[in-house]
Amino acid sequence: MAASGYISPVDESLEFTSDPPDASLVARAQEGDMHAFNQLVQRYQRQVYYVAFRMLGDSHLAEDVAQETFLRAYRGLSRFRGGSLKAWLLRIASNACHDVFRSRRGRQDLSLDSLMEEREAPWASPDPSPEEEAVSGELGREIQRGLLALPRDQRMVLILVDVEGMSYEEAAEAVGIPPGTLRSRLSRARAKLRDHLLQKRELLPPSFRHQ
C-alpha cells in the first residue's frame, strides 16, 4: 500500500482486517459504537480529504475540512437515511468547503500560487505512472489553477466526476442537484478548464498541443 506512511498501523488493521458493509457500520455507529464510526472514517477519509484539497487548493485547509466533515457526520448520523454514504459525506464536505469560502470572503483568495507551492500535500504514488508523471509539477499546478478559476458549483462537479471518478448519479446526490443539471454543469466546467489549459500550450502533452 503506497500510502502506509501516512496511516498508523492501528488504522491499517481497521481498514483491512474486516470489511463489513457501510450499512451495518452506520447502524452500529448510530448506536454509539465509536469503533464502527472510525472504520467508516478510515474508509472514506482519503476521498473526503482529496475532494476538499482539490476544491480549496490547500492541504491544511483540506485537513481542517476533512476533520470537520467527520465531526459533523458523527453528530448528524441519526439523520442519515440510507443511500450512498460516500455521497452523503461528500455533501457535508462540500458544505464545509463553502463555509471556508464564506469565512475567507474579503480576505486573500485561496488560489494564490504561494499556497499551492508552500503547502503541497504528500502524494500517493512513489512510482508514478507515465500519465501521473505528465501531470506532476508545473502542469499539475496549472490544472489546479484552472480548477480554482472555475465557479465553485462547476468546480465541485468536475472534481467529483473527473478527479474522484464518481458516477453522475452519485455526484448529483452529493451536490444535491438532478443528474440532468449535473450533466450540463459538468459540460460547461470541462469546456472552461480546457480553454484555460489551452492558454498554456507549452505545458501540455504533445497530443493535446496538437489540436
Binding site: 496511516i7 478510515q42 500517493a124 504514488s125 470541462r190 480546457r194 493535446f208
Partner: peptide, 30 residues
C-alpha cells in the same frame, strides 16, 4: 479531442494524501 484530453489529465492527477488520520479519538461532544 481536447475535451477528452482534459478529462484524461484530470483523471491522471496524482492523489494527494492527508498527513494524518481523521478518526475520532473519543466521543465528541454531541
Amino acid at each position: 479531442q481536447t475535451l477528452r484530453d482534459t478529462v484524461g489529465l484530470l483523471r491522471s492527477l496524482p492523489r494527494a494524501l492527508p498527513r494524518r488520520s481523521f478518526t475520532l479519538a473519543e466521543r465528541p461532544a454531541v
